[in-house]
């Protein structure tokens, strides 16, 4: 009993070693990554807004070439993927590893669907002659959405990894990265497609 209590106290000490970050679910290092990524995307979106304010005609004309339907479809796809990933975390917590793997698998497939739509969008823009160097709008569009798509690819690798090693902590941590990708897309979609 005494030993168990000692081990428990030690565990509490270790988990509270991150200070305020200890209150966050999952691995604190993942949250440091999430905060860093949000800061990077936030700066990129703020830079886009400043560039747009400097040349509203160009940005308005270029933005008209984006397909809001594709953007909205990808939003629905990622939000749905996020729901399955969140479900996987809860199942992992309940110890239902088989269900956890299924849910991560479905989240993974939705992630692939997102990339398929995005590649289709890029192909359409390139076919219309709007490449990376077409103008400032398209340079920023490809940089921000391309950087986000790279995170989707990385997120899919993490999902595959945590499906294979589906402990509660792994699933919570891996899915936190996936939700960050989801959150960033919600902001990117609003700024590039809707505004």
């Amino acid at each position: 009993m005494g030993d168990g209590e000692g081990a428990c106290n030690e565990a509490v000490e270790i988990s509270s070693g991150w200070g305020p970050l200890s209150a966050l679910p999952g691995d604190a290092m993942m949250w440091i990554l999430i905060i860093s990524e949000l800061a990077v995307f936030g700066a990129a979106l703020a830079g886009y807004a400043v560039s747009r304010a400097l040349d509203p005609e160009l940005f308005s004309a270029s933005q008209a070439h984006l397909d809001p339907f594709s953007g909205a479809l990808n939003t629905a796809i990622l939000l749905t993927s996020g729901a399955f990933a969140a479900g996987a975390v809860r199942q992992a917590r309940a110890g239902a590893i088989r269900t956890t793997r299924w849910l991560i698998g479905i989240a993974f497939l939705f992630g692939l669907a997102f990339l398929t739509v995005k590649v289709g969008e890029y192909a359409g823009h390139l076919a219309d002659g709007y490449g990376l160097e077409a103008n400032t709008f398209f340079t920023l569009y490809y940089l921000v959405t391309g950087f986000h798509a790279a995170h989707v690819v990385f997120g899919l690798m993490i999902l595959a990894l945590v499906a294979a090693f589906a402990s509660e902590e792994n699933v919570t941590t891996g899915c936190a990265f996936w939700h960050m990708v989801d959150l960033v897309w919600v902001l990117v979609f609003a700024v590039f497609y809707l505004s």
Binding site: P20, A23, L24, P25, L38, G42, L45, A46, Y48, A49, G82, A83, A85, A86, V89, A176, H179, M180, D182, L183, L187, A190, V191, S195
Partner: peptide, 27 residues
């Protein structure tokens, strides 16, 4: 609800304020 910050209300408030400020600046 997805990132489960409802369990850490202080962090939820902090992230919400940061995103509010970013959106306010952009829009």
């Amino acid at each position: 609800n997805y990132l489960e910050l409802s369990r850490a209300p202080g962090w939820l408030a902090g992230f919400s304020v940061a995103i509010f400020l970013l959106l306010a600046m952009i829009f």
